[in-house]
């Protein structure tokens, strides 16, 4: 069996003793968009955050089973979490630019990786902003505070910030949930472009969004992975009744 980019096997996650994820086994392919859908509290965000060990920040989280990225178990004792997160970047639900200028926001990642050459930084910043489709909007005011941007721009800035570190995988936790339709459309367009270079995993509440942009879709319910297949199949001919109920809105 060929292992995909991300691969979990019988993974369990507990929040201070309480089971939050149950027996998750999934294979996420490289350079594709994979969407996680499911009702609130079903564990999809928790699962996403365990792919770059952001759950380590929460007290009382315990993980069992295997979480493999490039065939390496990331919960191994010898894993360097800092380097893991360089490889697996993350964009959060709420846009969270630093209280710095636009330029500094993007340059922060490369800088902590030891790049201090001004020209090189300029280039990285420009490329990242162009990749995130925000360059034209901010190129004349790179010195302005990032907090002065609109919500949609801030989110694209956060994506650019993540891209500037040059990760292999980009995890996105409901990146467009707080945005208006226009900004959402821009972000979606961006995600589709990005899959040429990056493996993208996205959590979304918006099923149309999942249908539009993803190649594969996983449906989570109550901490379990109910169904995982090609997006087209999930949305047209789901195998499980629960999936169908959720997708058609007949849930609960």
């Amino acid at each position: 069996m060929i292992l995909e980019k991300i691969h979990t096997e019988n993974m369990y996650l507990y929040y201070s003793g309480k089971m939050a994820l149950k027996d998750i086994s999934i294979q996420i392919p490289e350079k594709k968009v994979t969407a996680f859908i499911g009702p609130s509290g079903c564990g999809k965000s928790t699962f996403l955050r365990s792919l770059n060990r952001m759950n380590d920040l929460i007290d009382g989280v315990k993980i069992e089973g295997k979480v493999m990225i490039d065939a390496i178990n990331i919960y191994d004792k010898n894993i360097d979490v800092v380097n893991l997160r360089k490889k697996v970047g993350m964009v959060f639900q709420k846009s969270n630019p630093f209280a710095k200028s636009i330029y500094e926001n993007i340059a922060y990642g490369p800088k902590i990786n030891g790049i201090n050459n001004k020209n090189q930084l300029d280039e990285i910043v420009e490329t990242a902003l162009k990749n995130a489709a925000i360059w034209d909007e901010v190129k004349d005011r790179l010195g302005d505070s990032a907090l002065g941007l609109s919500g949609g721009q801030q989110q694209r800035l956060c994506i650019a910030r993540t891209l500037a570190v040059n990760p292999e995988i980009v995890l996105m936790d409901e990146p467009a949930s707080a945005l208006d339709p226009l900004s959402t459309a821009k972000i979606e367009e961006l995600i589709v472009q990005l899959k040429e270079k990056y493996t993208i995993v996205i959590v979304t509440h918006n099923m149309q969004q999942a249908a539009r942009i993803s190649d594969n879709t996983a449906f989570f319910y109550l901490g379990e992975l109910i169904e995982y297949d090609k997006t087209k199949k999930i949305f047209t001919n789901p195998e499980r009744k629960q999936t169908e109920d959720y997708i058609t809105g007949r849930f609960g």
Partner: peptide
Amino acid sequence: VPKSFYEASLALGAS
């Protein structure tokens, strides 16, 4: 300072 700053920075691979 918002916790999101902290998370965002760590997610970028900062120590």
